[in-house]
């Protein structure tokens, strides 16, 4: 059997809507594309903990503090499922972290923007989680089984986060003039970066065509972006907030909102590492990893010694799982 025919069979399985599992044969490029995409997604969850974590210690009430802590913790959990999904493709979590820390792997650019007020926590939940859900709902039907299953669980939690964010915005927009101003300012700063989350325009997105063929993506960047705008504009109207785009208007003929042009120079600047917080975000991850090195080494040394003294591999496994 030639490689070509294996690839044909593989494509036929995908076309028939079958799920690909970890032990199935797959083209090398499919495997690599998945490692790249799933790990980018995992890194985004982990780096995404930082801008919101910036407000955990300053949350305005006990209820909000608990809500935000739980949300950021969920993101750590999402990171865990996704790293595990990536590991099924034959790469370790340490290698993936190394790719993040050396700047080889990317993460979502939205997290390179600063969180400057409490309203930013509402805006991130509403807009950033909202944009993420649109991407992720599509991914629950992606062709690679472990990824699709991780996404089902993640989507449930993300939609809770999105409601929580919207509820923060609703409270602010119905609150005092300062609160309303805070909410509008957060929308002004996060609107365009949220639209950028869907990536470059279709004609400039080199990965899209192959990804659609493999059902890694089922819709293009521009289709998803339009979906987000159409869903979000009426939500902003309910809040009584103004979307910072003078070109935004309903197009009766298309049945969609028209909207203005994204500042693509800014988009590429942030992707290339020159956003407002790229250095700080990566720096914080590297610092946590480096500061934790002695802890991880000690945990391994301890469990190795115990398993040697007990001559029992089971005890090591037990110990490593207890450590976590």
């Amino acid at each position: 059997m030639t490689v070509k025919s294996l690839e044909q069979q593989f494509q036929e399985r995908i076309d028939a809507g079958e799920r690909i599992e970890a032990k199935d044969w797959m083209p090398e490029k499919y495997r690599k594309t998945h490692i790249r995409q799933i790990s980018q997604h995992a890194h985004s969850e982990i780096v995404g903990m930082l801008p919101e974590g910036n407000w955990i210690t300053r949350a305005p009430s006990l209820r909000r503090k608990v809500g935000l802590l739980a949300k950021v913790q969920d993101e750590a959990g999402h990171g865990l499922y996704l790293y595990s999904a990536a590991e099924t493709l034959g790469i370790s979590r340490d290698e993936l972290f190394d790719q993040l820390h050396t700047g080889k792997a990317k993460y979502s650019s939205i997290f390179n923007y600063p969180t400057l007020s409490w309203a930013d926590i509402g805006a991130i939940g509403w807009l950033v989680d909202g944009a993420a859900i649109i991407n992720q709902v599509m991914l629950t039907r992606t062709s690679y089984g472990p990824y699709a299953r991780a996404m089902v669980r993640i989507c449930k939690e993300e939609s809770f986060h999105q409601r929580q964010g919207y509820e923060i915005m609703l409270g602010l927009s119905q609150g005092s003039p300062e609160q309303k101003e805070m909410a509008q300012d957060a929308l002004n700063r996060f609107w365009w970066p949220s639209l950028m989350m869907f990536g470059p325009r279709d004609e400039e997105s080199p990965n899209t065509e192959q990804s659609v063929k493999w059902k890694i993506k089922r819709k293009t960047n521009d289709e998803l972006r339009q979906e987000f705008v159409d869903i979000t504009v009426p939500q902003a109207e309910i809040l009584g907030l103004t979307i910072p785009d003078p070109d935004l208007k309903w197009n009766e003929e298309r049945g969609h909102y028209d909207f203005g042009e994204i500042d693509w120079d800014e988009f590429w600047q942030v992707v290339k590492g020159n956003g407002p917080c790229n250095k700080e975000r990566l720096g914080a991850r590297v610092k946590a990893w480096d500061d934790g090195a002695w802890v991880r080494e000690a945990a391994i040394a301890y469990s190795d010694r115990r398993s040697r003294s007990q001559g029992d591999e089971a005890s090591r496994n037990q110990d490593v799982s207890a450590a976590i």
Binding site: I46, M49, G53, G79, Y83, A284, A288, G292, R296
Partner: peptide
């Protein structure tokens, strides 16, 4: 939160 030595301890 977000700065632990591993995801699990975090």
């Amino acid at each position: 939160c977000g700065h632990g030595p591993s995801l699990e301890t975090d």
